[in-house]
Design a protein around this nucleic acid. Structure first.
Length: 571
DNA sequence: GCCGTTTTCGGCCCGACTGTTTTCAGTCG
């Protein structure tokens, strides 16, 4: 039973409390679930040491339930609650405009207990006969079901970010000064629900007209004075909100979230005798304005430094901002080179020279080329001979193109933790990433030993995509990251933050754990084509969500410094 | 169920919108 599994059960408690109609208990369970999920360390050890109640949001009652879950795998009270409602009821609340109250009535009065039943009842016009429902709600439910079925997954950050930023820059280039993506996209979460754009303009009709005439727009879904939605050629929906310039900061703050973060800001506002909403910060007694034009003004009035959007997740950022202890987060400009790139020699699409030129154009000082090793047949891993021949080619290209081309390798970690090239081959390279690409199902202990052994090899500089997860496709493999981080810090091996859209591995929370343990991160895009080098922005966003600063990341070092880093770890 | 710069009891974020109502509950972000 790990943290995520326990958190899932607490979330289920929350869902069931919602059906019971107790929103305060629901909130309490949600908060506990989130804190368990993001807990730094294993819940089991909190349990063994009798300090479950030191987890925020966990009191006597929830601590007992967690203990019971750890001992027995479940909770008697949870079983009892489950027995009261059919399991499909929570799924009904995924349909827009159906919350717990309506879902429960549909169940009690029409016996509807899942999406299929709901669809049938709507088609049979049985729903409109219920008091409080009507023809329009029935139609809305049908549209909602369709949407849930079609669009249940979230978008990858890597898909949403270019789209959102393109719309943003289109509006800016056409004279809109106050414009930004908002929501989870602005916070650079690894997956995104909706693409939201906030505009501050005193000519709202013009801004709206501009938005709905976006060149890549296919249809206008909704066009109003403050809200509009369009669908793009690729099917993506983009929502726009227009507010007066004077309200821009307050509105952007509100629509950026996270919800938990803004709720906390409102609580603080109340304690200070204020009221915070999407129009601004006001005095409670006479409704007079305190701040609203810029996000910074509102934070300042609440006694806080401006919190970067990527940190607004209720993970300690409020305390840091009130104590003047916010980290100085990594910036894109700090990155001096990409350290994980594939060429045509293995499974990439661009040549060494093309990549060198593109890296130079991006302003990099160096680029690290890391083709696969032979055991990864599917990716045409290089023979030792071809790899060594390319070392000389890299030197030549470096000189001719005026940018340092570092010849590295992404060498496979074999089943027993040995590496896929002999040491004398690896020692001829500028640096080495070691990665797991096989036998993902190993038991945790075996996988951990395998990886630790690979990291102990003096030629290894970076552990590639340390958990192997693929967003929406594959779970992380089982590995004891605590031991991996300890080992990394002792051995002077960096852990990778891989920027490939499906990976983003390490993720935000693990980046932060690594930083707290003094482990350095190496950022690479895992590019297989020239345009993939742009994945760097996804990695930087994730790094910022993990509170990383410039000094935590090795590829902010100059060429000389990073060579020393690679030397030191291989010496 | 949790928690305390106002509290060990009594709060727990705020406003808009929608569809159904005739004064509002439920849902959403």
């Amino acid at each position: 039973m790990n943290n995520a599994e326990i958190a899932d059960l607490l979330h289920e408690f929350a869902d069931l409390m919602d059906l019971k109609g107790d929103i305060f208990k629901r909130n309490a369970y949600r908060r506990a679930a989130q804190n368990v999920q993001e807990l730094d360390g294993d819940v089991l050890s909190y349990y063994r040491e009798g300090r479950l109640e030191s987890i925020p949001g966990v009191g006597v009652s929830i601590a007992q339930k967690i203990a019971e879950i750890i001992r027995t795998g479940s909770s008697a009270e949870l079983e009892g609650l489950r027995a009261q409602y059919p399991p499909g009821l929570v799924e009904l609340t995924q349909v827009p405009d159906l919350g717990p109250k309506k879902a429960l009535r549909l169940y009690r009065e029409l016996g509807i207990k899942d999406l299929a039943g709901l669809k049938k009842a709507a088609l049979d016009h049985r729903i409109r006969r219920l008091e409080g429902f009507g023809r329009r709600s029935e139609e809305k439910i049908l549209r909602g079901i369709e949407m849930v079925e079609r669009n249940s997954g979230r978008m990858l950050l890597g898909d949403a970010l270019p789209i959102g930023l393109a719309v943003e820059s289109y509006l800016r280039q056409n004279g809109i000064e106050h414009v930004s993506v908002a929501g989870s996209l602005r916070r650079r979460k690894e997956t995104i629900g909706d693409i939201d754009i906030v505009v501050g303009s005193d000519l709202p009709l013009e801004a709206t007209r501009l938005f709905v005439s976006y060149p890549r727009r296919e249809t206008v879904i909704l066009q109003g004075p403050t809200r509009s939605s369009i669908r793009l050629e690729d099917g993506t929906q983009v929502d726009l909100r227009v507010v007066p310039v004077s309200d821009y900061g307050a509105t952007l703050l509100y629509f950026t979230g996270s919800k938990e973060h803004t709720v906390e800001l409102r609580r603080m506002a109340i304690q200070m005798g204020y009221k915070l909403n999407e129009y601004g910060l006001f005095r409670k007694d006479d409704n007079s304005l305190v701040a609203r034009e810029e996000e910074r003004d509102i934070y300042r009035a609440l006694g806080l430094d401006l919190i970067p959007p990527e940190m607004r997740e209720m993970r300690g950022e409020i305390e840091a901002a009130s104590g003047g202890r916010l980290p100085d987060l990594l910036r894109s400009e700090d990155i001096r080179g990409d350290l994980h790139v594939h060429t045509v020699m293995s499974d990439g699409h661009a040549t060494m020279r093309e990549l060198a030129r593109e890296a130079k154009r991006l302003g990099y000082e160096y680029i690290g080329l890391t083709d696969h090793s032979p055991s990864l047949r599917i990716a045409h891993g290089l023979t030792a001979e071809d790899l060594l021949d390319s070392v000389e080619e890299a030197r030549q290209v470096s000189e001719e193109e005026g940018i340092a081309v570092l010849r590295g390798s992404e060498v496979d970690i074999l089943d027993d933790g040995s590496l896929d090239y002999p040491r004398e081959v690896l020692s001829r390279l500028d640096f080495v990433i070691a990665s797991v690409h096989s036998r993902f199902q190993m038991p945790e202990e075996e996988m951990t030993e395998r990886v630790l052994r690979a990291m102990s090899d003096p030629e290894v500089n970076v552990l590639g995509h340390p958990t192997g997860r693929l967003l929406g496709r594959r779970e992380a493999y089982r590995i004891d990251l605590e031991r991996v981080m300890e080992h990394a810090s002792r051995q002077g091996v960096a852990l990778e933050l891989n920027g490939y859209p499906y990976r983003l591995d390490l993720n935000d929370l693990n980046c932060r754990r690594a930083k707290e343990r003094g482990v350095k991160l190496s950022i690479g895009t895992d590019a297989h084509a020239l345009e993939d080098l742009s994945f760097m922005s996804l990695a930087v966003g994730t790094a910022r969500r993990g509170w990383l600063e410039k000094d935590d990341v090795i590829n902010t070092l100059s060429l000389d410094q990073i060579k020393r880093f690679f030397e030191r770890t291989s010496g």
